[in-house]
Write a protein that binds this DNA or RNA. Structure first.
Lengths: 353, 353
DNA sequence: CTGTTAGCGCCTTCAG
DNA sequence: CTGAAGGCGCTAACAG
């Protein structure tokens, strides 16, 4: 028989009671020098490690949190997940992770499973495809923080970015540089972020007395090619495209290249959400950048302040983080270009170790 | 007092013993129709959910596995993590995840914590920066499967891709199209994958009687700019670059654009590892593509076959998965180009729903 | 078909 | 300063 050693094995070997071992481990109560040494020796020779499952049962604290994201393929979600897990590590918590594939049922199932595992809290990027089921009374005892998208009619804490303002930043920049016909390319209207970005786009155009022109869908390259082809064929075709997230931006870039449309000469391009390869595209992409790490860290911090400090301030904190416009070349505002590129190069020099 | 209901609450309400509730839940033993109904009613009215922590302690089975990856920012790792978690879900297992940032100590700490949480097995993409500490006797009772990189001197199962052959594919393609001076751009020689890819490169050149020329490091854009500048300044500068992973590829693309070198006219480019934006780059990038999802799924399957079927076949399965050359335009082999692009478009049409 | 007992590994409480 | 008892929530084994 070769089972892992338990506390009683250590106690026996050290010639003490289990409580003494427990005390030595926790350091909570004084134990005599001599006894303590014997316990440590026993622990070392047996290679004893406490069983956290037993601890969790006994203490009614699992020291685990649950993280649910739509997927990990989109770097935005992946970075959120990683950041939360780093914060959790700082608090000696473990992270159970699951992907929900934008399906509320799947999301609910995963959350329920985590609840049965007694997670102490959740960080969730809610699924968009319907009505969230993360709201029932089951969740009333367990703090939930949502990232990127709030859950409507819930009192969960949430952290989002300035989606609307970000759009205004990007669109105003195009307007200031003379564009009068600016098209908005959305994905799904079911997405909170897309809706907010659309609103920002609309308001910016309205203030400038310009007419909005928008195309939702376009989630595949093929659709986008079709859409853009027809858009550009119309007379008074837009001179600038504003893309509401990185999938749409990628599809637009692909379509424009496929249709041999020159960027920014024929069409200027601005996207929402920066990504790894945005600055090696040709031309480098102008984007509204979101503070992804801050977003996730902030969310995790809120959760842990509830968990650790027993933070009993009213639920439903709603935090909004600022975004910034990163000027590269796809927007065609040439003057600023060189400056921006120089800054970027300087940055990369600074960051090199 | 408002604690979650436990099994005894259900039992009391239904007027039965806890064992009856347990039996109704597991379905393992027959329970009378009538009693069963009463139990289900009680469960429903109390909204009872079994406590998996208690179950885990009692059964000595946590139904959890641990996943450790260097980070989730690199989509390769993120996709591996997601795939493993999807397979775990299929087996009703939960996944505890942690990132190790290529640091063996951090990796070991995370693994230890998971062991204390009684995970039943591990899927790990080992950290590269030194000697792995995931090997001690602590891990002898818990199956470990490594992905992408094996741990040397260990008897863990592992799944990798044809790194060497993949390089030969990519490099031979360049050779066949007339390139005689092909430079290899590596990252760290500490990385198993890079070493294997370098070997493939070397052998391919050797067979063709060509002289290898290689540059390791270049992990930052700045370094890469400096390297490439000096490489291209030398006489008899290489006419083709072979990049050993996606970070290096990105840095090379950036540097070439920065230095205003035309691809593929002045320098042809082939990279190892495909990524989301590879086909919207200008020119679209020719790459050796790895079967990421297969890799992770295969690893997870091996782990679960050990966990579930009590698979006692000898440890140390070593599986190698095939890679493929995806011809786009950066390699400059124009003839094949159109065909490849057409295929890709056809594919995207097929995949559109 | 159903209930009782006991114990998974740990730590709070209470005695000594 | 140290130990014994008891219980966290669950289920295998053994009655009945």
């Amino acid at each position: 028989m070769n089972r892992p050693p338990r506390m009683s094995d250590v106690a026996k070997l050290a010639g003490v009671g289990t409580m003494t071992v427990s005390r030595v481990l926790s350091g909570s109560v004084k134990v005599s020098e001599e006894t303590s040494r014997r316990v440590f020796d026993a622990i070392a020779t047996l290679n004893y490690r406490p069983n956290e499952v037993a601890r969790a049962l006994r203490d009614q604290r699992s020291h685990q949190i649950g993280v649910i994201v739509p997927n990990l393929v989109d770097p935005f979600f992946a970075i959120c997940a990683q950041t939360v897990s780093v914060v959790a590590k700082e608090h000696a918590y473990s992270v159970i992770i699951a992907t929900a594939d934008e399906d509320p049922d799947s999301e609910y199932n995963e959350a329920s499973r985590m609840l049965r595992r007694q997670v102490e809290g959740f960080v969730i990027i809610p699924a968009a495809g319907g009505v969230s089921r993360i709201a029932g009374s089951e969740f009333s005892r367990t703090p939930v923080v949502t990232l990127d998208r709030p859950i409507e009619n819930s009192s969960f804490d949430s952290v989002v970015v300035e989606n609307k303002f970000g759009s205004q930043l990007g669109v105003n920049h195009l307007i200031q540089h003379g564009h009068r016909r600016i098209a908005f390319f959305g994905l799904s209207r079911n997405l909170y972020t897309i809706r907010a970005r659309f609103e920002g786009y609309r308001e910016a155009l309205k203030k400038a007395n310009l007419k909005p022109e928008f195309y939702f869908g376009n989630g595949t390259q093929t659709e986008m090619v079709a859409t853009i082809r027809s858009v550009l064929d119309s007379k008074n075709a837009p001179t600038a495209f504003y893309c509401s997230n990185n999938l749409i931006t990628r599809n637009a870039i692909h379509a424009l290249a496929y249709l041999k449309v020159r960027v920014p000469e024929s069409v200027a391009l601005v996207g929402f959400d920066d990504f790894e390869t945005a600055n090696i595209l040709n031309p480098p992409l102008t984007v509204v950048r979101q503070p992804i790490t801050d977003l996730a860290r902030m969310g995790a911090n809120i959760l842990f302040s509830r968990l650790l400090n027993n933070d009993r301030t009213e639920r439903g904190k709603h935090i909004v983080l600022p975004v910034e416009l990163v000027l590269r070349e796809s927007c065609g505002t040439h003057q600023k270009l060189l400056g921006a590129r120089k800054r970027e190069l300087a940055e990369s020099v600074l960051h090199a170790k």
